[in-house]
Computed example of a mutant assay.
Amino acid sequence: MTTATMTATTAPTRRVGPVAALTQTATLAWRSLVQIKHNPWELIDLGIQPIMLLLLFTYVFGGAISGSTGDYLQFALPGLLVQNALFYTLSTAVGLNTDITKGVFDRLRSLPIARTAPLSGRVVADTIKQAWAFALLVGFGMVLGFRVETSVLGVLGALALLVVVVLAMSWMSVLIGLRAANPEKVQMFAFSIMMPLTFTSSALVDPRTFPGWLRAWADLNPVTHLADAIRGLLIGGEVAAPALVALAWSAGFVVVFAPLAVRAFRGRA
């Protein structure tokens, strides 16, 4: 007589605790960061474009806008920090779209991990890379003549505020990356949003020179408040009010775009 034995197996649960989700996010963020070891030029790419823009805006437009390149450098560098950080969120969107089209997320989906981990891991990794770009751009700006007129705490506060706000706004790029059919369309859609968003703000020029209808938008534009707060932290000026508005916008971006991105990931991955 043979006795049949049955081994009870427990199906893996889809629910993951918050601590495990954070650990998985950190692991996937490290996955993105460790790729720099095999492609160190990625860090150089983070600096080439912002440095080129800094040189072009300072020495081509600076004299016409502010009367001298030195004055414009003091005004524009904080805004270029914001612009560069927002434009780099395009890389987040392109990277996500590439992972999806290559089937990387299909493998991640088979693992018992939090649904948000692949998305938040990519966002966190790219945010860390932005800290490198921030330091590089400020350092190069100081070589050109930019001077921090506050303190080291002001610089650290500017970096922290920039990271928090851009981290929140990255969810909009994540959604674009998940919805677009291929990386080329990601760049087209995201660039079409980021370009007018940054140039119709106080990042590079004083909005008081805008027509009335455009100035009204600039006063609402989250990039304006972020640029003003960063400028205040680096060279002096009002900080609290624009920083609070920028943080409020950040909360709105997370509330609106993060759930949409997770839903799109579930349907696309």
Rank of each mutant, 00 (worst) to 15 (best):
T69W: 12
V256P: 09
V60D: 07
P183N: 06
A158R: 05
I235S: 14
Q24K: 00
F87L: 14
F189E: 12
L55Y: 04
F210H: 12
F199D: 08
K185Q: 15
A218M: 02
L247K: 06
A251T: 01
V82F: 02
V152C: 10
V256G: 10
A258C: 01
A114P: 06
A29M: 12
A203E: 10
L178K: 00
A203G: 04
L144I: 12
A135C: 11
S120M: 08
V148C: 04
R109S: 11
E238H: 08
T2L: 14
A8F: 12
A64P: 00
L108A: 07
G237L: 03
L73N: 06
D228T: 12
P183K: 05
A258Q: 06
G145C: 11
S110E: 14
A135I: 10
Y72T: 06
M195F: 15
L159W: 00
V223R: 02
A21Y: 00
P211N: 13
I100P: 05
S192H: 04
T101E: 10
T69C: 11
T9G: 09
F146E: 06
F199P: 05
I48E: 06
I176G: 06
A203L: 03
V94Y: 13
L162F: 02
L234T: 02
L96E: 11
Q130E: 15
I230Q: 13
P78I: 10
V152W: 15
I176L: 08
G177K: 03
T3V: 11
V223N: 08
V223Y: 09
A251D: 01
N221I: 01
N97G: 07
V174K: 01
L86G: 12
I113Q: 09
T127R: 01
L214G: 03
P118I: 05
S110W: 11
T209M: 14
W171K: 07
F87P: 06
A160W: 06
A29R: 10
E42R: 10
G236Y: 07
L28Q: 04
V19S: 06
S151W: 01
S32I: 04
E149Y: 00
P183Y: 06
